[in-house]
Design a protein around this nucleic acid. Structure first.
Lengths: 251, 251
DNA sequence: GCTAACCCGGACTCTCGGTAACAGGAACAT
DNA sequence: ATGTTCCTGTTACCGAGAGTCCGGGTTAGC
């Protein structure tokens, strides 16, 4: 049974193909022939990759964080080996999934990338979104951290981890504000990863064993701590910021 | 070739065996016969497990974080399948390694369990020990993160176990001081897990990509942040502590 | 000498990642 | 109408690593 869309056979052709010159009589032998039979498939590979990533997300939801490529292929309604036409590797599929998750969580954390209101309000919004997402997509989170092979020898910087994805964006935001205040930008990444670890670690522990601490209390603690760390970084550069005064817009 | 100690054959027998009553004539039929041939092997299994864990640590150091059980067995001077006589599972071996690592780190972090001097000095000692250990045993750390096989039912993974071990000790220390100041003890665990996550996350990222930040700079940032968080927790209860005044001894 | 424990490794199975070879279908070209 | 091109898909096969089974060896206590 085919759970994916049946492919290009039923799709309207993209109208933007560049075959206006197709009647030109003499293409150089080395140049690729602009044959409509080839142009028809423009973008098909990326489309299919997206579909497989969709199936992978469903498979993770269905089978937990330990899905095999077999199960992902099954969820896509396709023989396992078909995957290797679109992904060089299991790691390649993995990377594509991580990219997608990065997109999803980035969208969720919009209030952090474009802070509105006071620093404390922005922090509270981001923490709320973060803890909510983490508790709702725990399997996906575990799947990614488990399979993050972090390219030991390959030197690929494309470390694909949810935390990395979040922290990268956070790094950019911090770098922006640090630069705005004329401070050393190098600490931004350390702050970002530290904060992500702080929030993730205490939240996941709290989920397992609340010990009488309410969700609001937890959120309150985290918000204050995050502010303290950010504040400390600013003060180290001689800048003081009022946590309850509106922030300059990032634009 | 045999890299491990050759086993009990060449070892002096432990003198503390409890066989003083071995001449007693009538053991119950259900009870195990106290045969010297059985008593000779007391503790042998645990000894061997330790030896294999030793070999695993050496194998990680030799082959990097991607060692196979095959390579661990080779380092132990033994056929791979021999491992399964002492470990039910690859995950079991994994867990044993994680336990050992937790012991090593706990020993390294002694200054945190028994703080001396001022708060900042104690924090600096603990952070220094932590970052030093992690930068010296990066492969081991990576090994644990990569092979976190989280036996889906238990949800356990090796790194979490280590972090939990550290955070538990830290929780006890914090509870002690919070109680000393007459504050609410419930936050101690949240603080402990948060701090562990904060330090671990930023340090591991720094390991992979230092970005021109030196180890001392990193340690300095972390020390200040940790203090800020601890200080915030105290202030929330109306207690102010001088970070540079000597701390009362934990005894 | 006998036997209870340990010691050992080799052969086997199972699962999973990955490759190779092969067959069919839809649209374009002629 | 027929062949070409590119995708679609499958099955068979290989290698690596995990885990099991089994037969045989060694030593110290009986």
């Amino acid at each position: 049974m085919y759970l994916l869309s049946p492919g290009p056979y039923t799709r309207a052709r993209r109208p933007d193909r560049l075959t206006a010159m197709s009647s030109s009589p003499a293409p150089s032998p080395a140049a690729r022939r602009t044959d409509g039979r080839a142009a028809r498939w423009a973008g098909q590979r990326e489309r299919r990759r997206r579909e497989f990533v969709d199936a992978a997300l469903r498979a993770v939801a269905a089978h937990g964080p330990e899905v095999s490529t077999e199960q992902i292929a099954e969820e896509a309604g396709v023989a396992r080996t078909r995957l290797y036409k679109y992904f060089t590797d299991a790691a390649d599929l993995q990377a594509a999934i991580a990219d997608r998750v990065a997109e999803l969580i980035t969208a969720e954390l919009a209030p952090a990338w474009n802070p509105h209101g006071t620093p404390m309000q922005a922090i509270a919004a981001a923490i709320g979104a973060h803890t909510t997402w983490l508790s709702e997509h725990g399997d996906l989170y575990r799947y990614l951290t488990m399979h993050s092979l972090s390219a030991q020898a390959g030197g690929r910087d494309a470390v694909t981890d949810v935390k990395t994805a979040i922290a990268r964006n956070l790094t950019a935001v911090f770098e922006h504000y640090l630069a705005l205040f004329g401070l050393d930008v190098r600490a931004a990444e350390t702050v970002a990863f530290g904060l992500v670890g702080l929030v993730e670690s205490s939240t996941s522990r709290w989920l397992e064993n609340p010990r009488g601490v309410s969700r609001d209390e937890l959120a309150g603690l985290l918000e204050r701590w995050v502010w303290r760390i950010f504040d400390d970084t600013l003060r180290a550069g001689g800048v003081e910021l009022d946590p309850d005064a509106p922030l300059p817009a990032p634009g």
